[in-house]
Design a protein around this nucleic acid. Structure first.
Lengths: 348, 348
DNA sequence: CTGAAAGCGCTTACAG
DNA sequence: CTGAAAGCGCTTACAG
């Protein structure tokens, strides 16, 4: 009996109410398991609802209650495994509380991001989790907050904004990777990828530079190849890296994707990554462990970031908002086969 | 002046109307650029709306018009680059017509998928694009269609369902890959990955088996390793593949991910993929071209599938529904470095 | 335990 | 070109 092929008459609360000789108020309460309704009545109502193929109209409900059950999530690019791993954790957490989540990429376009926030507001979104686009103004976060839609930030911070923010301790993390290479005897260490336009980019470069300085190694700008953030661009960077007259023996990469791309590029040039050149990644994506060679990298807590962010938002929606401000996740070193002691005899 | 920090009074159409001494009808029409409203009036209204920080309430509008501007998309796993590439194409297409799209994974759970369809119906979704979960019953598609929400299928078909369906010609595609290996002199060709529970799985195996038969090569079930669909499982399958007493010299893989994983596993075992063992992928992901060695694979038209599916849905929403039924995209061979002529001397 | 009535914020005929 | 009024389908006080 389910489904009405010709949309002649839509089934609504009042259809059920009339069919049973009850009021819509009772039907509404019964379908939401209110204890106010007698058990027998509730059962009759629920049966009828199924029989008629009733579909709850959330728009109507939400118009009345001003709560939609919708949570927005916007990141640079959901295809990027780094964000994908965060999203999976968010999804798991939100699924439990039966929230619908709306996903979007902003591709670092502030306009596309603002558009998304506005759409979400129009839909009555309950909250938003965002990895802010490069250059996000504080006003865009406030647009959400001021209209009653709390925001949570992940992976990046926004100046002047104090909403709950979850990300890794980037400076600490790249220092870990750099120190690891130094301890293996490397001194000509390049930094591949990243941009100075994000807090993440600046922090990671600072971590690398400080680690070198502390070890008494000069920081040479010629050893930096800024830009790459994808496998493809890491692959392409291999040419410049290998042609560098300073002959670096190791590379600290912006992330695992760049590292894997770079290793592929190095292999394509006939050298053996992990032996001839040591390479570190960043993030510890699932894929890092099965790369060839297995990638030495820095665990960046994607699943933690996603889980914490989702919980912080749900907490806020439930009235307890104690998590404001920055929450740094401590990265950890994962040593595998893509790094090895400097072999002074090998030379390049 | 934008944003009202204390949500004391929400700005709505009537707020603007009162402020200007107009009716809500006029304000509503003006904001949607109706020619019925005088230019001066319209401009005054729009200015006021911005000044007050008005946010259009789509729930209210949609309740009235029964059109929401929401399109749902549900696939097995948005993290999987195969689906991610399709999604990107869909996003590009839908963005143009300013539709909001809601994304979800079903992880091949029919329940999770039905849940999503129901949620979408509750939100008044205008349509749904889905790559159906394994075992999707026809009734779940009809649930959407019968309630006025047209469905488009991608990547997989559902028996008895005739809605517009876009996918690659899988049997043809794996036959291409298999014939390529045969032309290189290989005869002991394994098939790695996939499942008989989907039309795709059955078609790809059939394409492989038929190509072998046509070439007069016996199809030996012992050369099939069903199951793997990810990089990780392709990597793990390398052990069994290499231990196979039939000593296969080539592998037709379920998809690029399995192929890349398998190549990593082969490399880890000390053999050289592309020389000692020929490997073909399927899909031609962006990543295939930069794998080491660059992967010989079958282009599967992800961007075409996404673009066609989105257009078919938009067409349906605009009343022109001429695209019912199955639309097969013709795959094409992409020959790179992961396959090479059988070297009879090499032996294993 | 159940019902009558108001209202959420829009849009759409219908008047003028 | 503009306005008054009804209605989309719910939920929520308020009565009884």
């Amino acid at each position: 009996m389910r489904g009405n092929r010709n949309l002649a008459q839509k089934i609504k609360l009042s259809t059920i109410a009339e069919a049973l000789g009850l009021s819509t108020a009772t039907v509404s309460l019964a379908l939401r398991d209110s204890p106010l309704v007698a058990d027998v009545t509730r059962d009759r109502i629920k049966e009828k609802a199924i029989e008629l193929g009733y579909i709850y109209n959330r728009r109507a409900a939400s118009l009345r209650t001003s709560r939609s059950g919708i949570i927005g999530v916007v990141v640079h690019d959901i295809m990027n495994p780094f964000y994908a791993e965060i999203l999976k954790a968010i999804e798991t957490e939100l699924d439990r509380s039966r929230q619908t989540f709306i996903l979007s990429n902003h591709y670092d376009s502030v306009d596309k991001q603002r558009n998304f926030i506005e759409t979400l507001l129009q839909l009555g979104g309950d909250g938003v989790i965002m990895s802010p686009a490069i250059g996000t103004p504080a006003s865009d976060i406030r647009l959400a907050e001021d209209n009653g839609m709390p925001a949570i930030l992940i992976a990046r911070s926004v100046p002047e904004i104090d909403v709950p923010t979850f990300r890794g301790d980037d400076a600490y993390g790249t220092a870990l990777a750099t120190n690891h290479l130094i301890s293996l005897g490397h001194t000509r260490i390049a930094m591949i990828g990243g941009t100075d336009h994000t807090s993440t980019g600046r922090d990671r470069y600072a971590g690398y530079a400080n680690a070198l300085k502390k070890a008494g190694i000069e920081v040479d700008p010629a050893l930096r190849i800024p830009g790459p953030r994808t496998k493809q661009s890491g692959f392409e960077a291999a040419v410049n890296f290998l042609a560098n007259p300073l002959k670096p023996t190791a590379a600290v990469c912006w992330n695992d994707l760049v590292a894997i791309g770079l290793m592929n590029g190095i292999a394509r040039a006939g050298l053996v990554p992990g032996k001839d050149i040591s390479v570190t990644g960043y993030d510890d994506l699932e894929e890092a462990a099965i790369a060839t060679p297995a990638l030495t990298t820095v665990w960046n807590g994607q699943s933690e970031v996603g889980r914490f962010a989702a919980r912080a938002l749900l907490d806020k929606l439930n009235g307890s908002s104690e998590a404001d401000g920055l929450h740094l996740i401590k990265p950890e070193m994962r040593i595998r086969q893509s790094t090895s002691p400097l072999n002074p005899g090998a030379g390049r």
